[in-house]
Design a protein around this nucleic acid. Structure first.
Length: 188
DNA sequence: CACACGATGCGCT
DNA sequence: GCGCATCGTGTGG
């Protein structure tokens, strides 16, 4: 088994939307006993202190506290009474920002944030986990392939009044939860 | 303490 | 496209 090669703190310490883009093509890694399960990140969404974010208005609560902390940590929350979603914290200590992981390739059943977490057995036990350690959950380097286009679309499940083009995904990837034909057509 | 609702997914129409 | 399961969290009383 190849040893973990987790990305370091510096990788995460940047503006949220830029981290979102940098995460496309990287590998999300989850330890499963003696094995490591890896999925290629192909769909993400950025959340900062905007109206649709858990950290809206920079209001700190017990749930969203990790979003305000240092970068490179996992923010995992529970929603709809049955689903978990995992985020990667960006920015620097004190500034809220996180990237929601919405879809993975090279791993069946990891399209959509809830299914992704179910497939990788991610729940609130991992909230606040340091992703730079390489123990239970981490991210390894990976890049976009030649000719692989980044589609810029609006976030899913967000009220029209606060929609922002902060969902990014790799065109043509099977792990994408929902395509945006108009956004794809807007590509050169 | 009560209550409204969600960064979703699934099954049915 | 639509309804709904199911419960933690935030907000207000």
């Amino acid at each position: 088994m190849t040893p973990p090669r987790p990305l370091g703190r510096r990788f995460y310490a940047r503006p949220t939307l830029r981290l979102a883009r940098a995460l496309l093509g990287a590998w999300l890694c989850r330890r499963d006993g003696d094995r490591v399960v890896r999925g290629r990140i192909v769909e993400v969404e950025a959340y900062t202190d905007d109206a649709a974010s858990h950290a809206r208005g920079r209001r700190r609560t017990p749930r969203n506290a990790v979003m305000f902390g240092p970068p490179g940590f996992a923010y995992v929350y529970f929603t709809y009474g049955m689903h978990h979603c995992v985020n990667v914290v960006a920015e620097h200590d004190g500034i809220p920002g996180a990237v929601l992981l919405r879809g993975l390739d090279a791993l069946p059943g990891a399209n959509g944030p809830g299914r992704l977490c179910r497939t990788l057995d991610i729940d609130r036990r991992l909230d606040g986990l340091d992703l730079t350690v390489g123990e239970a959950l981490w991210i390894e380097p990976g890049r976009r392939r030649r000719g692989e286009r980044v589609v810029v679309a609006t976030r899913i499940g967000i009220g029209a009044d606060v929609e922002l083009p902060w969902r990014l995904y790799l065109a043509g990837s099977p792990g994408v939860s929902r395509r945006d034909r108009a956004a794809e057509a807007a590509l050169v």
